[in-house]
């Protein structure tokens, strides 16, 4: 038996909304330690990795008697979650050898309980081993700032060059019709921690990435006030959105290379 009671259905809604356009079907791997999801986009350029820890406060109850994999169409899951109120408590439930995933939405005042079942799918997905590495550069910035940068630069070109150095981080685009550059300096005088830009730099990095994917990742902006970009030369960038009281959602994107 698997049963996970999440205090805020809005968190699950935001997660699925941020994934469903790049990742059509995905396996939720459930174990006693929590729920993980790893999926690659159809072109094998971008990867998402979701971790929701069972011992965090976002789960009111969590039970997973044996490890199970729940293969779900994310478009369908998004439709089901739209049936929940943002303040509803959502319970996910499945048997040990499941064909069906059940969603139960409890309104805050417990006056309305709704239940939906969806059929599970067999999904053959290629799991990748992602080594734990120290990155040359980790940029922490407000998530809405990163969203704005990606949106602004995507008007002029297909790829952004991210240049991390000791003064800050530069985002540059060069298209056929024009070019643009946004410089972010490290902030020290900002009151709120979530408004700060910080750059932890071991080595400078200059790397180009497809804006189409970065813009898609920023659909997760509402999950977190801040976003962390981890970069090392010639390796995929990690775009991480911490999820309060649950864990995190990470996106990996392979760099563009010069031929």
């Amino acid at each position: 038996m698997f049963e996970a009671k999440m205090l805020q259905s809005s968190v699950l809604k935001k997660i699925i909304e941020s994934l469903k356009d790049l990742f059509a079907d995905a396996n939720f791997d459930c174990s006693s330690s929590g729920i993980t999801l790893q999926d690659m986009d159809s072109s094998h350029v971008a990867l998402c990795y979701l971790k929701l820890r069972s011992d965090e406060e976002g789960f009111e109850d969590y039970r997973c008697d044996r490890n199970i994999t729940l293969g779900v169409n994310l478009g369908l899951m998004s439709k089901i979650l739209k049936c929940a109120g943002n303040d509803d408590v959502v319970t996910l439930r499945a048997e040990d050898e499941p064909n069906i995933l059940t969603f139960i939405f409890d309104s805050k005042n417990s006056e309305r309980v709704s239940k939906y079942d969806i059929k599970l799918m067999e999904i053959d997905s290629e799991l990748l081993g992602i080594p734990d590495t120290d990155y040359s550069c980790v940029v922490k910035m407000p998530s809405h700032e990163f969203q704005r940068i990606c949106s602004n630069l995507s008007q002029l070109g297909d790829s952004v060059t991210i240049d991390c150095h000791k003064e800050g981080v530069d985002f540059k685009v060069a298209g056929e019709q024009g070019s643009g550059a946004i410089k972010l300096k490290q902030t020290t005088s900002v009151d709120k921690e979530e408004d700060q830009v910080t750059v932890q730099l071991n080595e400078p990095v200059t790397q180009s990435f497809a804006l189409k994917f970065l813009c898609a990742f920023t659909k997760a902006t509402s999950l977190s006030d801040t976003v962390n970009l981890s970069l090392t030369q010639d390796t995929p960038v990690v775009v991480e959105y911490p999820i309060a009281q649950h864990g995190y959602l990470r996106f990996y994107l392979a760099p563009k290379i010069e031929e």
Partner: peptide, 14 residues
Amino acid sequence: VEMQNQLFAYFTAT
């Protein structure tokens, strides 16, 4: 010319 590498070039299948 800019090319887009795939993730397989960096991570191995498990």
